[in-house]
């Protein structure tokens, strides 16, 4: 870590959550993840946006890296004040294999090789989290195949090397089945290398606690927001592609906590954030005005 006056900067493989991220388990996902980590089974997190997948990964990294944790990995690089390092790669449609593995860069007198995030994670034994993996080009997903079976190897073609994954290395990918079109589906050969943990939006009472905790609003307000979430999610597939995320509800809560009137807060954080369709906006707004005074 380098600390300048303005910001803190980490090497990708050094970053690890150093405060326990807040995460409220809904089911047995924590146990499942722990078991998978121990058994080195790659994990696929399925679920709609903003339901807590990324938070879950950070939470697990922290949890697994804690000294008190009974499954502290032998080879993993435990961060002094936090958990396992997590390298997150947000996948996009132009993400290529070299973006993940590494590439030559031009240097003063020729070229210099630089490791990509995946290579770094493999080398240091970190959790590598490929967010929205289906967005990446299909040829790149094939790259992770040797990493995700018994071999746990990363071939680096351009260097003519094969890297063995460190002990703590775990590949976690996330995937939102909701809005991916048939065109963008995971190949079965990829899919069947992961166990899948299904995430949904938390039930109303859990979500209430999450909102209350994350946005610092009174429990009553959080409950109303959770209620709004539940109602709006009823509209999924009936005009809305995706239900409102917990994240958005938290944003609304934060605005309310800062003194923005609830109806207005929901309008900007929920209604307008969700859709551009005027009629659906109006419908959701009616739900908002029914719930909030």
């Amino acid at each position: 870590m380098t600390t300048t006056g303005m910001y803190r900067q980490y090497a990708a493989e050094e970053y690890a959550p150093h405060v326990e991220p807040f995460y409220l388990p809904v089911g047995d996902e924590v146990e499942l993840f722990e078991a998978a980590f121990e058994q080195k089974i790659p994990v696929l997190l399925k679920g709609p946006t903003g339901c807590g997948k990324t938070r879950f990964v950070e939470y697990m990294a922290y949890r697994l890296g804690r000294p008190v944790s009974h499954i502290r990995p032998a080879g993993g690089v435990a961060h002094p004040d936090g958990g396992l390092p997590v390298i997150t790669v947000a996948c996009h449609e132009d993400l290529t294999a070299s973006d993940l593995v590494g590439r030559y860069l031009l240097d003063a007198d020729g070229t210099r090789w630089i490791d990509g995030p995946l290579t770094r994670a493999v080398k240091t034994g970190a959790i590598c989290y490929l967010d929205e993996v289906v967005e990446a080009r299909k040829d790149t997903t094939v790259l992770i195949h040797p990493l995700t079976d018994y071999r746990r190897l990363l071939p680096v073609e351009k260097l003519g090397q094969v890297i063995e994954a460190g002990d703590g290395f775990l590949l976690v990918i996330s995937y939102n089945p909701g809005y991916q079109s048939a065109l963008k589906d995971l190949k079965h050969s990829t899919r069947q290398r992961f166990i899948a943990i299904d995430f949904t939006y938390p039930p109303r009472d859990v979500e209430t606690r999450v909102i209350a905790r994350e946005s610092d609003v009174a429990t009553e307000v959080a409950a109303e927001l959770a209620k709004l979430g539940e109602k709006v999610r009823n509209l999924k597939e009936h005009g809305l592609g995706e239900g409102v995320s917990t994240r958005l509800l938290i944003y609304a809560g934060r605005l309310i906590a800062r003194g923005i009137p609830p109806r207005r807060a929901c309008q900007v954080a929920v209604v307008w954030a969700l859709t551009d369709d005027a009629e659906i906006q109006r419908s959701i707004e009616e739900v908002v005005t029914s719930i909030f005074e």
């Binding site: 539940e230 109602k231 709006v232 009823n234 509209l235 009936h238 005009g239 009629e279 659906i280 109006r282 419908s283 959701i284 009616e286 739900v287 029914s290």
Partner: peptide
């Protein structure tokens, strides 16, 4: 009616 339809759908969760 379309607004109300979705409003009712949101409230009840049934089509």
């Amino acid at each position: 009616s379309e607004i109300l339809r979705m409003y009712c759908k949101a409230l009840t969760g049934t089509p």
